[in-house]
Design a protein around this nucleic acid. Structure first.
Length: 482
RNA sequence: GGCGACAUGGCCAAGCGGUAAGGCGAGGGUCUGCAAAACCCUUAUCCCCGGUUCGAUUCCGGGUGUCGCCUCCA
C-alpha cells in the first residue's frame, strides 16, 4: 500500500514520498478574515485536518502551517467604513474562525502566521528579486516581471500568449507588462503601511505565502494546499517569485487543490453574495454531521450545499453514533452473550479496514473511506447482540472488541468523534438525567400495568422536548435528538 | 473569446476495461403492546452519437448540458 496523490502541477496521480523521510511539511492557504466565515471555508480546513490525521497515523511527523491574510484591500475598505483598525477586524474574525474549527474537531495548525508578522522577510525577498532582475520599482511599487520567469504558466497550464490578449488583467501605467504583479505597493497616508527601501507601503498579495513557506517550513515543502480558484494567478505567481528567488525548483513538491462548494449550482463566495455562514450551520446541525457532509465528496469535486444534504448527513452521523453505542454497551456489560457468527464479523472488520486504507491511499478518497465505515457499522449492528441473558463467549467478545477498536480508529482518522452528549453544566446535567430517570421509571410501571396511554404520553412529551426513549430488551434507553 | 473540469438510481456519491460501493429517501418483511433503533429484501445498465475491443459506465472522437478559471475569492 502506498499513498498516491493527485498533483495539480503534473496533472496526475503520483506516489507520495516526502522530501525528508518520516516528515511531511504542509502549507495551506488560509482565509482573509474580513468577515464571517462561510461553510466553504470549512471544506479545506476539514480536508487538511483529515490529511494530517491520516499522515500522522501512517507514522509521519506532520507540520502544517496556515496563513491569515491580515493586510488586504477588503480589510482596509472595511476599516475605513467602520473606523476600526484593520488588525483588530482581522483578529476578531480570525478568532471566530478558529472557534468554528474547534467545533468541527479541526486540530490546530502548528502556526497561523499573519502577513503583518513577516514584513521584514517580505522586504528582504523583494529586494533580492530586484537584485536578480526579476522585479523592478515603479513609483513606490515593486512589480515582478512575469515573462522573465521561464516556467510561468506551468501550474495553471496557461500560456503567455493566451494571457496577454485576455486584457482582463489589471492595466496600469506603472507596470511594464499587464501580467506583472505587485510584490510591494505604496500605501496612501490613510492606509496601513510599513517603511521600506521604496517608501511607505505594504506587501502585495502573493508574496506573503512565499515568505511564510520559507520561514516556517523551509523549501521545498511537501504539500501546498488551496482552493482551485487560487491556481491562477495566486499559486502560479507564488511559484514564479519563489523559484526565481530561490534559484531552484521545485518550490512545492505536491500541489493539492480542493474544489469549491456550490449553492444552487453557483460557487459560494462573498463576491457573489450567496454565502451561508458557518455559525448558522453549526447552530443548526451537529458539527460532526457537518464534517461528515464535507467529507462526503472527494476533494477534487464540487460539493453542492443544501439543507437536505446536511439533514441527510445528520442521519448518517446518527447511524454511526448508534453503532458506537451498540458496541460500547455490549463491551461494558459482561452479561451480554456474544456476536452472532464471530468469525464472519472478524472477516468483515478486516475487509472494511483494508478497504478504508485503500480508499485513503487513493488520493484521500474520503467518500469511499466513509463507505467502509458504514459497512463496518452494518457488520457491528448485524452481529452484536445486546439482548442480555446469554452466557458470555470469549471469542464473540474478542470479535466485538476488535470491531469496536477498528471503528474507533477509522473514525478517528476522519476526525469523526462520537461526543458524549453530556450537558455542559453538571448541575443541570444531573438534574436532567435524574428527571428523565424518574419519568422512565414511572413509564415502566405504566407499561407493566398495560397502561399504554400513560406510557405513550410520557414518551411523546419527552420526544417533543428533544429526548427520545427507546424500549429495548435490556431496558429503556434515552438520548437527545434534534 | 481562451483554458479546464464534470455529466452514475428520487437526492447525494464512489468506481473508471469484465456486466454498478456507501449514505439519505421510498416500498415490503422481521423484532416490538405500539414506537424507536436494528436486521433482511426491493429500488440504475452509468447524458447522446460514433469508434477501438472478445467485452466500455470506464479508452478515443464528435455532440449536448452544467460548472470553474482567465479579476478579489477557501
Amino acid at each position: 500500500m502506498a499513498l498516491r496523490v493527485y498533483n495539480t502541477l503534473t496533472r496526475r496521480d503520483e506516489e507520495f514520498k516526502p522530501l525528508e523521510e518520516g516528515r511531511v511539511r504542509i502549507y495551506v492557504c488560509g482565509i482573509t478574515p474580513y468577515d464571517k466565515s462561510h461553510i466553504g471555508h470549512a471544506r479545506p480546513s476539514v480536508f487538511w485536518d483529515v490529511v494530517r490525521r491520516y499522515l500522522t497515523y501512517l507514522g509521519y511527523q506532520v507540520t502544517l502551517v496556515q496563513n491569515f491574510t491580515d493586510i488586504e484591500d477588503k480589510l482596509i475598505a472595511k476599516s475605513k467604513e467602520t473606523g476600526t483598525p484593520p488588525a483588530e477586524i482581522a483578529e476578531k474574525y480570525a478568532a471566530d474562525y478558529l472557534v468554528a474549527m474547534d467545533k468541527l474537531g479541526v486540530q490546530r495548525a502548528d502556526a497561523y502566521p499573519r502577513a503583518s508578522q513577516v514584513i521584514p522577510e517580505i522586504i528582504e525577498m523583494t529586494k533580492a528579486l530586484i537584485a536578480k532582475g526579476y522585479a523592478y520599482e515603479s513609483s513606490g511599487d515593486v512589480y515582478f516581471r512575469a515573462e522573465k520567469f521561464k516556467g510561468y504558466g506551468k501550474l495553471s497550464g496557461k500560456k503567455l500568449e493566451e494571457l496577454r490578449p485576455g486584457a482582463r488583467v489589471e492595466v496600469s501605467d506603472l507596470k511594464e507588462s499587464p501580467l506583472d504583479w505587485a510584490l510591494w505597493k505604496a500605501s496612501p497616508e490613510d492606509e496601513p503601511g510599513w517603511p521600506s527601501p521604496w517608501g511607505r507601503g505594504r506587501p502585495g498579495w502573493h508574496i506573503e505565502c512565499s515568505v511564510m513557506v520559507q520561514k516556517y517550513l523551509g523549501t521545498p515543502i511537501d504539500m501546498h494546499g488551496g482552493g482551485t480558484e487560487l491556481i491562477f494567478p495566486h499559486h502560479e505567481n507564488e511559484i514564479a517569485q519563489s523559484e526565481a528567488y530561490l534559484g531552484k525548483e521545485p518550490y512545492v513538491r505536491y500541489w493539492i487543490h480542493h474544489d469549491m462548494l456550490n449553492l444552487e449550482g453557483e460557487k459560494m463566495s462573498k463576491s457573489l453574495g450567496n454565502v451561508i455562514s458557518l455559525d448558522e450551520i453549526l447552530r443548526k446541525y451537529d458539527p460532526m454531521a457537518v464534517r461528515l457532509y464535507l467529507l462526503s465528496a472527494h476533494r477534487r469535486k464540487i460539493l453542492e450545499f443544501s439543507d437536505e444534504l446536511l439533514r441527510s448527513a445528520e442521519k448518517g452521523w446518527e447511524r454511526i453514533r448508534n453503532g458506537f453505542s451498540r458496541a460500547q454497551e455490549f463491551l461494558s456489560n459482561p452479561r451480554f452473550g456474544g456476536a452472532r457468527d464471530p468469525l464472519n464479523l472478524q472477516r468483515e472488520v478486516a475487509r472494511c479496514n483494508e478497504e478504508f486504507f485503500k480508499a485513503m491511499d487513493d488520493d484521500f478518497n474520503t467518500p469511499s473511506a466513509l463507505a467502509s465505515i458504514f459497512d463496518l457499522i452494518t457488520a457491528i449492528n448485524a452481529h452484536v447482540v445486546t439482548s442480555g441473558g446469554e452466557t458470555s463467549d470469549s471469542r464473540g467478545r474478542e470479535a466485538v472488541a476488535e470491531a469496536y477498536g477498528t471503528l474507533l480508529r477509522l473514525c478517528g482518522i476522519l476526525g469523526l468523534a462520537p461526543v458524549t452528549e453530556k450537558v455542559q453544566d453538571t448541575v443541570d446535567a444531573r438534574l436532567v438525567e435524574g428527571v428523565i430517570k424518574l419519568l422512565t421509571e414511572i413509564r415502566e410501571k405504566s407499561r407493566k400495568e398495560k397502561d399504554y396511554r400513560t406510557a405513550d404520553a410520557i414518551r411523546e412529551r419527552l420526544s417533543s422536548l428533544g429526548i427520545l426513549l427507546e424500549d429495548t430488551p435490556a431496558g429503556t434507553k434515552w438520548r437527545f435528538i434534534r
